[in-house]
Design a protein around this nucleic acid. Sequence first.
RNA 1: CGGGAUGUGGUGUAACGGCUAACAUUCCUGUUUUGGGAACAGGCGAUUCCGGGUUCGAAUCCCGGCAUCCCGACCA
Length: 415
Amino acid sequence: MLQSKLFTKTKREAPKDEMSKNAELLTRGGFVYKEMAGVYSYLPLGYRVLTKINNIIREGMDAIGGQELFLSALQDKNLWEQTNRWSDDIVDIWFKTKLKNNSEAGLGFTHEEPLTRIMKDHISSYKDLPIFVYQIQTKFRNEIRARSGLIRGREFLMKDLYSFCKDKKEQEKFYEKAKNAYTKIFERLGLGDKTYITFASGGSFSKYSHEFQTEMPDGEDEIYLCSGCKKVAVNKDIWEGQKKCPECGNSSYTEKKSVEVGNIFNLGTKFSESIGLFYKDKNGEQRPVVMGSYGIGPGRVMGTIVETFCDEKGIIWPESVAPFSVHLLIIGDDKKTKENANNLYKELEKKGIEVLYDERDVSAGQKFADSDLIGIPNRVVVSEKTVKENKFEFKKRNEDKSVLLDRDELFKKLR
RNA sequence: CGGGAUGUGGUGUAACGGCUAACAUUCCUGUUUUGGGAACAGGCGAUUCCGGGUUCGAAUCCCGGCAUCCCGACCA
């Protein structure tokens, strides 16, 4: 893509109402636009990143048998009354609205209820189970306080997968699979080194659950990270209960600030029983379906990645989610340099390498500053100097020094 | 929901109750430039969040509303 065609512009300074690092850098770089507190729109650069995050999650879910669907955001009051989750006294984050006929509808903050009801149409026998379905969809939560940019919003994206199983054993088997899939997903997203499986108290309706917590200095959660295996953390309550790591038995820990990027829950039969999702087993006996739910917030992940990978100049995207793979900068405008840069651009595009080509008529300094801010992982500079030496200047965003490479060496790096 | 703070061109800031609301940046025109947000000249852009009030006079003081951020409690 030609950068002169990109409609977003970078900002020298962040708006003063953005204090968090993620919102500051994403706003300055032109990735997002704040509509109101806790509500962000994704602009082209941001949407490219978001799409990559979504696709990594998608591949992870498909790999464990997930079938993607897309549920409605508007929710039926009567359905939610069946599980006692319509009342504002029970769920205080509903966005509700009156319909023209004076009935009420809500905007979904999660989707156990509607999906369970849908499944009543499709599950009747043990032969139908297990089923795993997921969606990447907008959720609405009327939070008392939105904060930290993309980390806690009132409207946000969520990948939510739901499992429907015959019994506890089948459910727990899938639960383990999902846990492993999540681990892989966060590795692919570049957050593997700083994301810990965390034992949580379990919420209101499940016996046990796990959170995926990413270490982040400005995070709103606190975890106790096991000093032994360094892979597992627990929340305070559990720790005080057993005083040792549930995985390796070690009893020392370090306290870390963190952000919850994913979670997995065993739901049991709470929803299937209250909504009436039953199946017939081999003996013809009626049994409730055993369920689980598994969430990841792609927008929150994006914010977390920015907070994790940045420096004083801007964002440093991991390759896997970067809006483009290569940022090509042309410095100078003589004929040879232009020819050289244009040819490289065409060749990169031809090879299917995602490249943002900064051919704008602006100063070299501004190109470098913008490049650092936007944070594309590979930077290639073409200038009079590089043309003279028949080379290209290559630099990774996360490294300090650039190197001069000839064409073949360059393409090896960019493959 | 408790506490604190703040609202001034697109963005960041300034302005004692008193001159046509100032500066920087963005943007436009031209010239000159091109290795770290270039230089010079000229220009566009504001109902100072909204509504009341006090005053000869309000961006500035008072009241009400709205919005935003931060801390806490809560929460993916």
